[in-house]
Simulated scan of single mutants.
Amino acid sequence: MPELALSDWDVVGVVRMLSWAATGLGLGLWLWSWFGEKDAIRRLRFSDCGVVIVFAATLLRIVIQDRAMTAIDWALALLSPLFILAALWRLSRTSRPWSG
């Protein structure tokens, strides 16, 4: 049985699959924040985690694409970091104080 070398793996295909899996996870967190969580702060934190994961996966797909960027791609490339930073800032503001 022949051994698989690293060159046998389609790295871009694996990364694309992982980015879609991350998008599904982020959408699942969004749905959980809307329909499953009752506490307002936890709902906000689940939503922010979903925002970070979805927009990071979107940026990853933009980076690995092999076609020319469209206007939507440019808009997402410019707005995604802003949404990610805003969600991370809000996550830092709603975390528990460090008791160390």
Rank of each mutant, 00 (worst) to 15 (best):
L76K: 08
W20A: 03
I41Y: 10
M1F: 14
G50K: 05
S47Y: 14
A21D: 09
T70E: 00
W74Y: 15
R67D: 05
V11E: 02
S19K: 01
L82I: 15
T70A: 01
F55M: 13
D48H: 06
G13D: 14
A22K: 05
G26E: 06
I64R: 06
S7E: 15
L85F: 14
L85R: 08
L78V: 11
G36T: 05
R96G: 06
I62D: 04
W30G: 04
I53S: 08
S92P: 02
R43A: 15
I41L: 05
L44M: 10
L82V: 15
R96C: 12
L6Y: 14
A22I: 03
L85G: 14
A71D: 12
L31C: 07
V12A: 05
A77H: 01
M1S: 13
I84V: 13
W20C: 06
L4S: 12
V63D: 10
Q65H: 14
A77L: 12
K38H: 13
R90K: 10
D73C: 05
L29H: 06
R42M: 11
L78Y: 00
G50E: 03
T23F: 12
I72M: 01
Q65V: 08
D10H: 13
E3W: 11
L91T: 11
T70M: 03
A87F: 04
A40H: 12
I64E: 07
G13F: 00
S33W: 12
L4N: 04
A68W: 04
V63R: 04
V15K: 09
R16Q: 07
M69R: 07
L27V: 01
V63A: 13
S92E: 11
I72D: 01
A56W: 01
I41H: 03
E3V: 08
A5D: 05
L25H: 02
D39E: 14
L79P: 08
L6T: 12
R43V: 00
I62H: 02
S95P: 00
W30N: 12
R43E: 09
A86V: 00
P81I: 01
L44H: 14
I41D: 10
A40S: 13
L60P: 06
Q65C: 06
W34R: 15
F83V: 00
V51M: 10
V11K: 10
F55W: 06
R43W: 00
F46P: 02
I53H: 03
L6S: 08
C49V: 15
W74A: 05
M69T: 01
W30M: 00
W98Y: 14
V52W: 00
I41F: 04
S99I: 09
G26D: 07
S47H: 15
L27F: 13
W20N: 11
E3T: 13
R42I: 07
R43M: 05
L6Q: 09
T70Q: 07
A86D: 10
